[in-house]
Each structure stands twice: as structure tokens, then as C-alpha cells.
Nucleic acid binder design. Structure first.
Lengths: 189, 189
DNA sequence: GCGTGGTTGGTGAGTGCTCACTAACCACTA
DNA sequence: TAGTGGTTAGTGAGCACTCACCAACCACGC
């Protein structure tokens, strides 16, 4: 593994375990097994290092799962349950880092800019799910009136929310119940 | 307004505009119109100041709106739309501060502890909504099979999610579509 | 085959700056 | 006159980042 890769891994590890505020160049260097000065042979400054971590060390399990969906295969409701389970796990894992970017508006702006030029970002996840739901609707396996975008946001948003709340309270996530409720709807009285 | 109040207002303002990482005692003091040392006449340390802001300056519009809900009044669906609109606005406003707490695990732990002893926290919001939905169900205005907890998480989670995504992309929130989709459900094909 | 000089990637020891926090002091009021 | 609430002018610690230096490798003329 290259020095650069070891530095990225170390930085990602420190960010996850110590929080962004405690992620100093000293800590990263120690975790990577190099001197602080060595960091600057591979990255212009700390911001470039952070942005590289965000770009190159983002877990892509959820995006991969969603990209592999194929309309018409299996039961839609089963698929949604599987997605919800994966989404909760994904958001629990990524939330601390994603959230802590908000403590540094300059970093947030730089990250937004970087995402825009690469054409990816957090919003691609619900878009991929919406595309799948649209395809299932076209096959007649979802009602014609359903809005795929809202449905994707409802499901992923609830998973995101339950992951978020899990950090403040001991409330357990319940992906199965979410899918059941979304499936049945509130308006059947 | 007391000095203490002015300090809390100033701290909340700096936190919102500059981000938690740039919220220094110097900035807060400047914004409040006092010397840095004056802060320490009213707060033991910076953490106590932050926790006081989180406790005493949390916008309570959403919690207030939810607490004022009365089952049986108006149309349930209309009420939910109103809630969704308020929730999006609320989360857009509060998300940056709530999120940036994750960059300081020590602060997060202290906040969790403080919330626990006061018996409130982010989780009380969906709980209040769930209680309202449960009451409507008891009145027969929602189907008997619906799970109020999941429904509350779906709606508020989607609002939270759309607010979150709004910080990364220019995707507009659409509370009305969320309520429509949640109301109709996905399983009516 | 072997000195020579350039490049790459590393080090330890700093630099100046900003941070949270404090000591000493002072004005006002009960 | 004692207490409250403010000030100025610091303090040591920790921060991102830089400096001078060095070891290993590599192409190349002789």
C-alpha cells in the first residue's frame, strides 16, 4: 500500500474515532506512522487531505446496492426492506463524518464544489432509488399515481433519521416497520 | 436583556453563521459586546456556554406546533402537510448546529447526558407526532393497522433528509408530495 | 563498473499564530 | 466595605505548517 493510501486510511480512522475537531495533523501522522512533515509531501494542506478522504474513502455499499437493483426481480416490498436495512447501517456509519463537516463552513463549501464537478454526492443515493421505483411503476408493480422521488425520500429519510436519533437516544431503528407503514399508507381508513 | 442573555444570543448567532469550529470565545465576546473575560463571569467554561445555548436557544417552533395538535380537529392530511412544511424549515435552521456537535465527541456526550437528565431531546419530536397519530387512529380517522411511530419517523425523517440534502445540492424540498405519497402508500397496485 | 548530480520521499526541530482561560485590577452599588 | 460585574493584559498549550537536511535511487558520461 502506498504512503498516500496509508495516510488516507489513517486520516479516515482518526476522523471516525476522534471527531473532526480532534483530527489534527499530528494525530494523523502518528496513526499513519510518518512525521507530520511527510503529510505535506503528499497533500498541499489539511483541507486537501480531508477532501481526498471524503472523495476516496466514502463507503459505497449503499450506492452499490442501489445501482445493482433491477426492476421486475423479486418482490418490490422485500427489496425495499433490504434497502432500508442497508441504509440504516450505512447512515449510522457515515453520519458522524458527514455531519461534522458542518462545523467548518469552508470545508462544506469546498466539498460541495468538489462534488458538483464530479457529478456525485449524497443526492445521488435517493435519485438511484427513485429511478428503480420509477422502473417498477412502469412495470405495473407499483401504483401509477406514486411519486418515485417522494417515496425514495420517505424511505431513505426515515432511515437517515433513525440513524441520527440513535446517536442521541437509545431508540432502536426499525426498518421493517418503516417499509410496512410506507407500503400500506395512511389513507386507507 | 441581561448580559447572560446577550452572550447566549451572540453565541447562538456565531454558531449558526460561522460554524462550531470558528465559534471561539473571542468571536462570541465580540458579537456580544463584552470582553472575553466577561464570559467567564457567567459561564464556567466554553462547554457550559455551548450546552446552555443548546438548552436555552433551541428553536421550539416545531415542538410547540406538535404539542398543540389536537386529534379530531381539521383534516388529518391537511395537518400533516402543515407539519411537514414547518419541519423542513425547522430542520434547515437547526441542522448545522446539531450536526456540528458530532465533530466534538466530548460535547456530544455531554449534550446527550444533559438531555437525558432533562428528559427531552431530538427524539421527543417524533414521539409527540406519534402520539397525535395514535390519537387520530383511536378516533378512527386513521386505519387501525397503522403504526404511529413509523409514520412519524417517515414524515419527519423525509423532511430532515430533504433539509440535509439541500445543503449539498440545490434540490428543493417538497413537503406536499411527501405527505401525498405517505398518505397513498406504495401497495395499492 | 563507477563517481556525479538530480529527484523523490522522508525526518526533527522549529515558526508564528490562535486558542481557552486567568490574574490583577477597577467602578459601582447594597 | 464587601460583593458583583466588568476591564486589560496577559499565560501556556496546541495548532497547521515550514525549514534545513538526509538517504536511497536512478540515468549517464567516462
Amino acid at each position: 500500500m502506498s504512503t498516500r493510501d496509508r495516510m488516507l486510511d489513517a486520516a479516515a480512522h482518526v476522523m471516525r474515532t476522534k471527531g473532526l475537531a480532534r483530527t489534527t495533523t499530528k494525530e494523523i501522522a502518528k496513526a499513519a506512522g510518518f512525521s507530520e512533515a511527510a503529510l505535506y509531501k503528499h497533500f498541499a494542506d489539511k483541507t486537501e487531505l480531508f477532501l481526498s478522504v471524503l472523495r476516496e474513502r466514502a463507503p459505497s455499499d449503499l450506492a452499490g446496492l442501489l445501482a445493482g437493483l433491477e426492476a421486475g426481480r423479486g418482490e418490490v416490498r422485500e427489496t425495499l426492506t433490504e434497502i432500508a436495512r442497508a441504509a440504516v447501517a450505512f447512515y449510522v456509519e457515515t453520519f458522524p463524518i458527514a455531519a461534522s463537516i458542518f462545523s467548518e463552513p469552508a470545508l462544506l463549501a469546498a466539498h460541495r464544489e468538489a462534488l458538483k464537478t464530479h457529478g456525485v454526492g449524497p443526492a445521488t443515493v435517493p435519485e438511484t432509488l427513485a429511478r428503480y421505483l420509477g422502473a417498477e411503476r412502469a412495470l405495473g408493480r407499483l401504483p401509477a399515481g406514486v411519486d418515485p422521488g417522494s417515496a425514495a425520500d420517505l424511505l431513505l429519510g426515515a432511515c437517515h433519521y433513525q440513524a441520527f436519533l440513535g446517536f442521541f437516544s437509545d431508540r432502536p431503528a426499525d426498518p421493517e416497520a418503516l417499509v410496512r407503514t410506507l407500503w400500506d399508507g395512511l389513507g386507507r381508513s
